[in-house]
Design a protein around this nucleic acid. Sequence first.
DNA 1: AGCGAACTGGACTTCCGGTACAGTGAATTC
DNA 2: GAATTCACTGTACCGGAAGTCCAGTTCGCT
Lengths: 210, 210
Amino acid sequence: MAMGRGEATRERILAITEAAVLAKGFGATSIEEVIAEAGITKSGFFYHFRDKNELARALLQRYMERDDALLDDVFARGRELATDPLNGFLVGLKLLAETMADLPGGHPGCLVATYAYQERLFDRGVCELNQHIVFHWRARFRTLLEEIVEHSETKEPVDLDALADMVSTVIEGGLVLGRATGDPNILPKQLMLLRSYIKLLFEPATSAVH
Amino acid sequence: MAMGRGEATRERILAITEAAVLAKGFGATSIEEVIAEAGITKSGFFYHFRDKNELARALLQRYMERDDALLDDVFARGRELATDPLNGFLVGLKLLAETMADLPGGHPGCLVATYAYQERLFDRGVCELNQHIVFHWRARFRTLLEEIVEHSETKEPVDLDALADMVSTVIEGGLVLGRATGDPNILPKQLMLLRSYIKLLFEPATSAVH
DNA sequence: AGCGAACTGGACTTCCGGTACAGTGAATTC
DNA sequence: GAATTCACTGTACCGGAAGTCCAGTTCGCT
């Protein structure tokens, strides 16, 4: 990425802010501390972002792009390693769990959740972007699930949108519990339980012993 | 509850603050707006709470007690309506989903999650209480699950602590998604999917049509 | 009537978000 | 190489909110 001088500063501000926001929330992250760490002045900051809201939006945008790339990669690799869509999805979930487990200190948390619990702080644009991200997740996982149901039936009748949402639900919930307890292993374990559900739901019943 | 004059004011402050915190986060909730709504002065506020941190702790304490009472009730009723522990748990989950769905405007959100994403604002006592609540949930659901495994085996090998955590995970994740999208139905639906998992996991395979 | 709990009133400090605007060095363009 | 533009700096200021201090007041109970 060739970055101009301005772009590099903007990126530095975003990186510093993201760490701070995930560590202590958006409201508790002061512009002053960000500019102190970035080595710029307040005027410099407001040259790049009109206000804190614009910073929030840019941050969420950046977060979404990276998150998207990670999920693309994980589930594409899962699909490559497997012979059918169901197995691809299961491998993808396992890879995701491993990726989350391998992060030093655990996943730092999700900006979507951070924003969801501070909505009044933000303007409509930011809230809409947050909503869009969740719907984007839903569409992503639904696509994968639709490929699965073409090959195998579910043992219980389920709403595919809700099932797609369950992936996001488990990730968000796992992150909340992980943060609240300080245990980074909760998220990976929860992802493996979700995997177990998907497996039970789609795999033909085997009477085999484990 | 017979309340003294002081206790009533304290309770009023907590009720107003809880609504505000769930609506826009703790950082964005100013003491000034709380006292304005409560009709007291700043001095009056600081007579009851030393600082914002003590308010946070009292709020979380209150939240925990109510949450506890609700879960006690729901799963006790579930157990009464059913013949065995597994069915009792499944009915409890359904009752919980219905309770959440019946709340006007949906569940307002969970304070544990709110606090989890703003930890640096709080002192150790508050963070420890937050952690304690999650472990308390784990113990609660684990107890119920242990009764179930005494009667029926799981089809997949699962860690009971992780499975107990999954209830909290789905609730927290469902709330995050519900808040982010503005759709209060997500949480109930996710609870029903969790129910479906528990069912598949413990119920002997039936070849019956749904 | 008197005591203590539950406040009121007001003055003050610090920190932060945000505004305003004039100035400046480095790079790009003509 | 002069002009322009970008990417800032420096300074000064405002309003809101957390929090402190303390003196005074009202209410309920014994």
